[in-house]
């Protein structure tokens, strides 16, 4: 397969500029049974995240008497990819993504408050178009905030990549398939701590810096969208009351 031109006249195949995010829409609490949940449409990605707990850690040996444990399960629906039918459940990639996602949230949840308990984070990718782990983390952060479980920050995640020598933000699947580097990052926006960082491909030292700067800038937008998703249901209620007064 020949590599398609991914950037023509400075613009990407979907018309975006190198440092431009795809459109992101987040809805909070779509799943009634969960303690908190969120649904994200990030470009063509469609992802649900739901939180269960804090609840007794089971089986018992998975718990920790000093703090809550976080469990995370990231899975892709077998129909989620534009390519062939996938196998449901956990493959090796999914196990790794579940692990790094779990670590992002262990960093921000006030675990000491719930000894012996578990907090389960389920991330279900219904449709995928590149950058699902970042979108999943961004979505799960909103779900956690919506659940009311105390956190010291609401992380966001996004990836940067490289096409030729151009650093681009938030790659979609086609860009990802033909890119020269991919670097998903999660950051706590309040403290700017990096809690997820993965990378493969080739980046020079200065390109790593460029990519990180681009990600931090995009973080401002993503954080805003996350906060709006949390506020929206309450705004609706208040405007209704306002009209009736």
């Amino acid at each position: 397969m020949d590599k398609p031109e991914l950037i023509i006249d400075g613009k990407r195949l979907d018309g975006r500029m190198p440092d431009q995010l795809r459109p992101i829409k987040i809805t909070s609490n779509p799943i009634r049974n969960a303690a908190g949940s969120a649904y994200i449409e990030w470009g063509n990605n469609k992802i649900l995240a739901a939180i269960y707990g804090p609840r007794e850690a089971l089986p018992k040996h998975t718990g920790n008497l000093n703090r809550a444990v976080v469990k995370c399960r990231y899975t892709m629906a077998p129909f989620s990819s534009i390519e062939e039918h996938g196998r449901p459940g956990m493959n090796r990639r999914a196990i790794e993504i579940s692990k790094v996602t779990k670590e992002v949230f262990e960093n921000v949840i006030l675990l000491d408050l719930f000894p012996g308990n578990e907090i389960s984070i389920f991330v279900e990718v219904l449709q995928s178009d590149g950058g699902t782990r970042a979108a999943g983390i961004t979505c799960a952060a909103v779900a956690l905030a919506a659940s009311g479980i105390p956190m010291r920050d609401m992380p966001y995640a996004v990836s940067a990549g490289k096409v030729g020598e151009t650093i681009i933000l938030d790659m979609n699947k086609i860009e990802d398939n033909y890119s020269d580097a991919d670097m998903p990052v999660a950051i706590n926006p309040r403290t700017k701590e990096v809690t997820l960082l993965q990378m493969d491909g080739a980046l020079s030292r200065s390109q790593v810096t460029t990519a990180l700067t681009m990600i931090e800038k995009a973080g401002e937008t993503i954080t805003k969208i996350q906060r709006e998703a949390l506020l929206r249901p309450y705004e609706k209620v208040s405007s209704k009351y306002e009209a009736s007064i």
Partner: peptide, 9 residues
């Protein structure tokens, strides 16, 4: 010449 892979844990 380049960073080839990274992983935070």
């Amino acid at each position: 010449n380049a960073v080839r892979a990274m992983q935070k844990g």
